[in-house]
Design a protein around this nucleic acid. Structure first.
Lengths: 340, 340
DNA sequence: GCAGCGCTGGAAAGCGCTTTCCCGCCACGC
DNA sequence: GCGTGGCGGGAAAGCGCTTTCCAGCGCTGC
């Protein structure tokens, strides 16, 4: 047990070469090494089962092979899809991804970033939406600065005024397009499950949706706020059903698919038929949507692709300018929305 | 940009103490440091925004704060739930989890383990089922040995004869119990979507299911193999519908919830009503199940808990004996299974 | 024929931290 | 009064690797 690890020095000695030579052989150095020595080193390394000590390399090179990925909740399909994209790209580049989950706590986000800084992560992808809370945002910005100062790159998925590379989904445009299409179906009374009021994505989608309704000359929707989770959607839908019985909306938009799923469950329980009694639409097009009945209308975002893009941004050094990649949402009407 | 990072040496100098003292103050050393010096160090560290270099610490201490987590596919709810459990525990212990995805490739699994070894990860949780392929298993075993030799701990989630700590879900027992309950509903002709034939979990669940049917004096099921994914379930269900029209099963068991979801989609498309025309059950009780219609009967596994347990095993040093924690599956009959 | 160059190999100086070892100091106890 | 022991502080030796710098050597070019 616990046999000490094979070191480069041992390999070098065994192969009868210097430490420097062994190092040059076993890592793509710019320096040439004669084929003979090179072979010898390679062979002994193989025999001894040498694996370089990543910490030591990181220390000596002053750069590690870690990429951070910060999400709110890895069980949320939205995040797990993005995570899949990020890990794919990272692994392709021989990097290793460190997963941090915040449970939607801005403070935790800052903490994680600091940890990642301690590990000298070469880059970080911040998925999930920034809060609008000033103080929290300032702390985050400071931590991001510290991180970039140190030579790391940061990319955000979703809106961010933080001066980092960003993948921006067309939240506003998507919401707007969706609203117009729903209005075109004949709906005139809308409700929105708007998520937390201090979350940028939620606000943008809502704002877009309102704009779309306005475009169509439809009255503004009733908005119910709540957590951006499946249960949040469930509760919000119940609240919606409880109030405003008199002039109930005929169509409800949940700013997130997972909320929409919760909402559908609530409607089902209350005997409200979808789409006959109430149309419903979400946003994101998470994969699990394929298996809901009725199939949920939504605005499709290429989630996994977004993860890949973010990882791409953060990995190829790029200029000093913060780059922004926009990805458009595509309205997908399915069975959960009907003519009114 | 790229201002060099604050080092311990700078903090020490600024605070007018030795490197040793600064180190002792800023990390829980056993040695005492006078309150005065301690304060001074703490204060300057704070002022300078000192963050210890994790690589250097890992090197000096010969142990890192990394915990590996290896899954097949992070977008699969089964794995993302386990991941959530693992990350929670890891973060509670001040550790950082590195996420590796194998896409179900045994070779990739070995590669990842090797990378984790290079990083001197202190522990690894291997989620996902081991293959029955001898050669692949040998390579994995060798890599696991190398890892533990080096002082790291390894835990597996699911069956494993690899001599590591293991969290073993009651696959066989769960399958068996489920079969009996379904038989008790009056079904006599069963089909199973059995997943890949070389996967241990899949085989165990199937074996248990067969045993349960035998217990109830019911004929063995028709088995269709295929990938352990949603689309695999979809295809398998189609195949099932295509053949055996004459004496079709009245109840189908998918060894995995995600497969069951795919299968339900296939049935729906083909106009086969669930549960009127066909009952269906899965295994795992992934969270998304709450939102399928009809709600899917299944065998519930405490997925997130399993992740926590695995992380727990792997983190508290424990003896040298491989420990095994069994978690029972609980049959949950919902709307997708009806009397026959 | 020799200065100068390019090329390969090795010695050694770090990278930032931990930890051992040693030293000086201050009670103590006899 | 002096030997002991305990304790807080610092010097310095690593941890395993990268990389600079230098030495040696065989060539080319005048």
């Amino acid at each position: 047990m616990s046999a000490r690890q094979v070191t480069l020095a041992e390999v070098a000695k065994q192969a009868g070469v210097s430490l420097a030579t062994a190092s040059r052989v076993l890592n793509g150095s710019t320096r040439q090494v004669s084929e003979e020595l090179s072979d010898r080193v390679l062979r002994t390394a193989e025999e001894l089962g040498y694996v370089p000590n990543a910490s030591a390399q990181a220390l000596a090179r002053n750069s590690s092979s870690l990429v951070g990925l910060v999400v709110h909740d890895i069980t949320d399909p939205y995040f797990s899809c993005i995570a899949a994209g990020v890990t794919r790209v990272a692994e392709e580049n021989g990097l290793v991804v460190v997963l941090g989950t915040t449970n939607r706590s801005p403070d935790r986000e800052v903490e994680l970033l600091s940890t990642l800084r301690a590990h000298r992560a070469r880059a970080v992808v911040l998925a999930g939406s920034r809060t609008t809370d000033r103080a929290a945002q300032a702390r985050l910005a400071a931590e991001i600065d510290a991180f970039t100062e140190q030579g790391g790159r940061v990319a955000c998925v979703s809106q961010a005024k933080l001066g980092t590379d960003t993948v921006v989904p067309g939240n506003r445009a998507g919401g707007r397009a969706l609203a117009r299409e729903l209005a075109a179906l004949g709906h005139r009374r809308f409700a929105v499950l708007g998520g937390p009021s201090d979350l940028v994505v939620a606000r943008d989608r809502l704002a877009g949706f309102k704009a779309g309704l306005a475009d169509a000359g439809v009255a503004p929707p009733v908005v119910v706020n709540g957590p951006l989770t499946r249960d949040g959607g469930y509760e919000a839908a119940l609240e919606l059903l409880a109030t405003r019985r008199q002039a109930r909306a005929t169509c409800v938009f949940a700013v997130t698919d997972v909320m929409a799923m919760g909402a559908m469950a609530a409607l089902r329980e209350r005997g409200v038929r979808v789409p006959e009694d109430m149309s419903i639409a979400g946003f994101d097009d998470i994969p699990t949507l394929r298996d809901t009945v009725p199939a949920l209308s939504t605005v499709r975002l290429p989630l996994e692709r977004m993860g890949e893009i973010a990882a791409g941004l953060v990995l190829d050094a790029g200029g000093d300018e913060a780059r922004t990649v926009r990805v458009a949402g595509e309205v997908v009407l399915r069975a959960s929305t009907a003519h009114n």
